[in-house]
C-alpha cells in the first residue's frame, strides 16, 4: 500500500505555486530595481512589514482551518496597544500591564466564542459586531490622541537590533510562526482542527469536541491579536487608533493567499507564511520600482486574484493527474 511521502504532501500543498509565483515576481523586481530589491535594507523592510500581521495570520489561519472566522482581531490589537499604554501610564510594572492586556483580549475571545457556540450566531456577524464594540472602546480610550508606550523593556523588544542589524522582534515572530506550524502539522490539536473544520458533525460523532476547540481558538486568536497590537505600540513607542492594514481582514489576507480556505479543513502554516511573504514582498517590490502607495492597494487585490486563479488551475492539474 502506497503511503504519503514528504514529496507528495509538499506537491499537494499550495505552497509550491506561491513559491514559484514569488520567485518570478522577485526576479522581475530585482531586474527592474537594478538589484536594489535584494539588498539587506529592502529584505529587512519586507520582514519588518510582516511582523505585526504575522501574529494575526497565525490566529486567523488556525480559526479558518477549523471552519471559523474572526473579524475583530485587528481591533483587539489596537485596543491592546491603547490599554498597554494606559496601564503603563498608571505606573503598573510592565509584566503586569502586559498580563492585564492579555486578560482583556482573552475576555473578547471568550465573548466571540460564547456568541457563536452558545447563542449560535454566524461567526461573521458576531465577530463583526464585536469588532465595532472593541473599536469603539479603543476610540473612547484614545479620544483622538495617542498614548506613549515608553517602558524600556517593551520598547527594547519592539526596536532592538542584534548587532545593530537584525531586529529581535523578527526573530521572535519567525519562532512563533514555526511553533504554530509544528502544532498544526504534528500535534493532536492540529489534526483535530482539520477534522473539525472539514466536518464538525462527523468530528463530534467521532468523539472530538468542536466547541472546546472553538473556545481555544477564539481565545488564542484574540491573545495573538493583543500581542500584535502591543508589538506595534512598542515599535512606534505609542499606541494609536489605526495602523493595521486591511482592517477586519488583516490576518486573513495572507492566509487566504497561502491557500487557507474559508470552507475550513484545508491549508497550512507554510502556505500562510509564503502568502504573507508574497503579500509584503510584492508591496515592497512595488515601492522599490516607484509605484505610488495608492496603486499598491489595487495591485494587492489583483495579486490575490492571480494567486487564487493559479491555485484553481493547480487544483485542476492535481485532480486530473489522479
Amino acid at each position: 500500500m502506497e503511503r504519503s511521502t514528504w514529496f507528495s504532501r509538499f506537491t499537494r500543498s499550495k505552497m509550491i505555486v506561491l513559491l514559484v509565483l514569488y520567485v518570478i515576481l522577485a526576479a522581475i523586481f530585482t531586474v527592474v530595481s537594478k538589484g536594489q530589491y535584494l539588498s539587506w535594507y529592502n529584505i529587512r523592510n519586507i520582514m519588518n512589514s510582516m511582523v505585526v500581521t504575522a501574529y494575526l495570520t497565525c490566529g486567523a489561519a488556525f480559526l479558518m482551518i477549523a471552519g471559523n472566522v474572526d473579524l475583530s482581531t485587528a481591533q483587539v490589537a489596537l485596543l491592546s496597544g491603547a490599554m498597554l499604554g494606559t496601564f503603563l501610564q498608571m505606573h503598573l510594572p510592565w509584566p503586569i500591564a502586559i498580563l492585564g492586556v492579555f486578560v482583556i483580549a482573552a475576555a473578547v475571545g471568550t465573548l466571540n466564542a460564547v456568541l457563536i457556540n452558545e447563542i449560535k450566531f454566524q461567526p461573521f456577524v458576531a465577530t463583526m459586531a464585536v469588532s465595532y464594540i472593541v473599536q469603539g472602546l479603543m476610540l473612547v480610550r484614545l479620544e483622538g490622541f495617542s498614548i506613549d508606550v515608553d517602558s524600556p523593556p517593551i520598547v527594547w523588544f519592539g526596536t532592538y537590533r542584534i548587532k545593530g542589524v537584525l531586529p529581535v522582534s523578527i526573530i521572535f515572530t519567525f519562532i512563533i510562526f514555526a511553533i504554530y506550524g509544528v502544532i498544526l502539522v504534528k500535534s493532536k490539536f492540529g489534526k483535530m482542527l482539520y477534522l473539525v473544520g472539514g466536518n464538525p458533525t462527523a468530528a463530534k460523532l467521532a468523539g472530538l469536541n468542536p466547541k472546546k476547540i472553538s473556545y481555544i481558538l477564539f481565545i488564542n486568536n484574540a491573545v495573538l491579536g493583543s500581542f500584535a497590537g502591543m508589538l506595534q505600540a512598542a515599535r512606534l513607542k505609542a499606541a494609536t487608533a489605526n495602523g493595521i492594514a486591511n482592517g477586519m481582514f488583516a490576518g486573513m489576507t495572507g492566509a487566504i493567499l497561502g491557500g487557507v480556505s474559508f470552507g475550513g479543513g484545508s491549508g497550512g502554516m507554510g502556505g500562510a507564511f509564503v502568502g504573507l511573504v508574497l503579500l509584503n514582498g510584492f508591496n515592497a517590490g512595488l515601492s522599490t520600482v516607484g509605484l505610488s502607495p495608492y496603486w499598491q492597494t489595487v495591485a494587492s487585490g489583483a495579486l490575490l486574484l492571480i494567486a487564487l486563479t493559479f491555485d484553481y488551475f493547480n487544483n485542476k492539474r492535481l485532480a486530473s493527474a489522479k
Binding site: S4, K188, K191, M192, Y194, L195, G198, N199, T201, A202, A203, L205, A206, G207, L208, G265, S266
Partner: peptide
C-alpha cells in the same frame, strides 16, 4: 454529512477517534 471528513484522506478518517493512541 455525518460520517466522514470528505476532504481528508483515509488515514485521517480512520484515526479520528483514536488520536490519543497514535501519539
Amino acid at each position: 454529512d455525518q460520517g466522514l471528513v470528505m476532504w481528508r484522506d483515509i488515514t485521517d478518517n480512520i484515526s479520528m477517534p483514536v488520536l490519543d493512541k497514535l501519539m
